[in-house]
Design a binder for these strands. Structure first.
Lengths: 215, 215
DNA sequence: CGTGCCATTGAGTCAATTCAACTTAAGTGG
DNA sequence: CCACTTAAGTTGAATTGACTCAATGGCACG
């Protein structure tokens, strides 16, 4: 199921439909933007969809380093440190270096900061804390669900969540189920999430234990 | 035992002895170079000793992000993302921005790359793999032990190794003990290490299982 | 030459993994 | 539009790796 770093490029890459700006590119789910250790001439802006940055390993495992959301710009580097893939169907816009301009260094800096945060989350805490932290982190990036009020589209498959947080997919499932059981969130559909108790989530993200108000 | 981010600055900072260049600074063990979220006007070159970069958390835990060795230069950033402390007694040399010059962006890049590598190591593998990876990583940085041939000074306390690799100190000890028992390394003294079987170490760093040639 | 910090080892516990079965949703083509 | 096929998600049970707590050993530093 996992693709290894030497596989062929962009498996699905269609030209943009007439309605969109010519310079927009549409990528199908799981298409590859670029591979790790490859030269990447342009910066890329995410217009729609979600992109994952992952480091792939020869043993087939991977570590997802970050997710990119609409408005984010992926910096072109001399040599990319990660593989970028479309989590959902994506609309992208190539950006020249001039467009990006002074963000060059601050962009790298941002990536560094994100890595540090992820390291911290990954480093010590329990699966529960990590998941709570993750849910809080993605909260304002998730698009609304057109079919349900107060519901957001939880666009990232469990698989990817697990590889981001350094846990197995099963643990990711179980943790989400526990959150639902305690009323922190609701999951009307697999790809739909309602945030019910942000304060509680924040508390769980901090301390490794539950110890909640149950009385 | 752990110091929190708001404690007082540089607890031990002596002026350099006459034998050294005036511009050198000597720091005692566990002295602080700078704190996270603090402005740091100058870049710093490590002349002697080892420095750790750590992110400290309010719950008293920490994640060590990287170690710096003689020859490394710590970039001055608008706001430091980590606390830098002396692991051993250190000799430092302040560097102006001009000295560093074009390394500005590549320096940040290096820290980023290190974070990614650490994330990858931390992310999934077993304590055994992580430790093997760590030993390989620090191999060429360790100074020789004057008292024993083929032996290196293992300058980093178990404590710090553990916080770097995201495991408990006890696990770090046990893992090292296992390596010694299997002849991958030798530990004549707590602060001395002999690398015996690099190939085996490399193999262990890859796969999570042992499955060695024991027959 | 104590004395305190760092390191090591043991035992028991628990959280997270693995393996496996099964359910539900999403595609796909007739 | 419906049956079929495949992928994704969920739950259970057993196992184990790493953690915690605790006690001891030893080196280094004053």
């Amino acid at each position: 199921m996992l693709q290894i770093a030497t596989a062929s490029h962009s498996l699905l890459e269609e030209r943009s439909p007439s309605a969109r700006d010519i310079r927009h590119r549409v990528l199908a789910r799981n298409a590859v933007l670029f591979w790790q250790d490859e030269r990447q001439p342009q910066a890329i802006e995410i217009v729609e969809g979600t992109v994952r940055a992952a480091r792939l390993w020869s043993d087939g495992s991977r570590q997802i380093l970050a997710f990119f959301w609409p408005g984010d710009i992926i910096q072109a580097a001399a040599l990319q440190r990660y593989t970028a893939e479309a989590v959902t169907r994506c609309v992208l816009r190539p950006r020249s270096h001039e467009d990006v301009g002074t963000f060059e260094s601050s962009g790298t800096d941002q990536a560094l900061q994100a890595s540090i945060c992820l390291l911290a989350a990954t480093g010590k805490k329990s699966a529960t804390s990590r998941m709570a932290w993750f849910l809080l982190q993605i909260y304002e990036h998730l698009p609304q669900d057109p079919r349900r009020a107060h519901a957001l589209r939880f666009t990232i498959p469990r698989n990817d969540v697990a590889d981001y947080l350094g846990m197995s997919m099963e643990t990711a499932c179980r943790t989400l189920a526990a959150f639902r059981a305690r009323g922190l969130i609701d999951l009307p559909t697999r790809k739909t999430i309602c945030y019910r108790d942000m304060a509680q989530l924040a508390r769980v993200a901090q301390s490794p234990k539950w110890e909640d108000a149950e009385a």
